[in-house]
Computed example of a mutant assay.
Amino acid sequence: MAEPDEPLKTDDANKWRWILSSGWHGRCPRCGEGHMFASWLKVTERCDACGLDYRFAAPDDGPAFFSLCIIAFPLAFVIVWLEVMFDPPIWVHLFTSVPIMLFGCLLPLRPIKGWLVASQYVNRAQEAGTQGLWAKLHGSDASRSEFDQ
């Protein structure tokens, strides 16, 4: 694991593994020990182990978008196939298709959000030209990156 005050220094393969591991387990992308989430989808304010400030984390609608594109879209084809091939009564869809869609789309939201937050930290992703504005809004040092404070 990386020390709390030094940025993660790895090659691309290790960076990718680190992002997937910390995001999947909901662990801090800096130290790998603290919790990333305060509740199911709410990102905590600070890491309880190394003190990483999560104000940089802005996954916004990314988890929902990826869940819909990667999971819901193919599942819709499966449900349509079920309807076309077997023409089941509506209660079959109520007890099979609806739960499959709900669980299939909701369960992956947390790991996807964790991956996006970890990716933002590891790749130091932020909007171009916003470092000064962030420092002013959060009362932090403008000469240091938000990822290091």
Rank of each mutant, 00 (worst) to 15 (best):
A64G: 07
L94A: 14
S67E: 08
P63E: 06
L52D: 01
A128F: 08
V80A: 10
G132T: 00
W91K: 11
L82W: 08
L109E: 06
C47S: 07
F77C: 00
E83I: 12
R110F: 06
V117H: 08
T44S: 15
L109A: 07
P59V: 11
P88Y: 07
L109V: 05
L116T: 12
L52N: 04
A64D: 01
F95V: 11
Y54S: 06
Y121T: 09
G129L: 00
C69T: 12
G104Y: 06
F37G: 02
V80G: 09
G132S: 00
D61Q: 11
T96H: 12
L52E: 05
A128C: 02
R46N: 09
E45T: 10
R46I: 06
E83R: 11
L52G: 00
L107D: 00
F73L: 15
H138D: 05
T44I: 15
W134V: 08
G62C: 02
I71M: 08
A125I: 15
F37T: 12
P59F: 04
Y121N: 08
E127H: 13
C50S: 11
C31E: 13
G34E: 07
C105T: 15
R124H: 03
H138P: 03
A118R: 04
G129M: 02
G139S: 09
I79Y: 05
P88V: 06
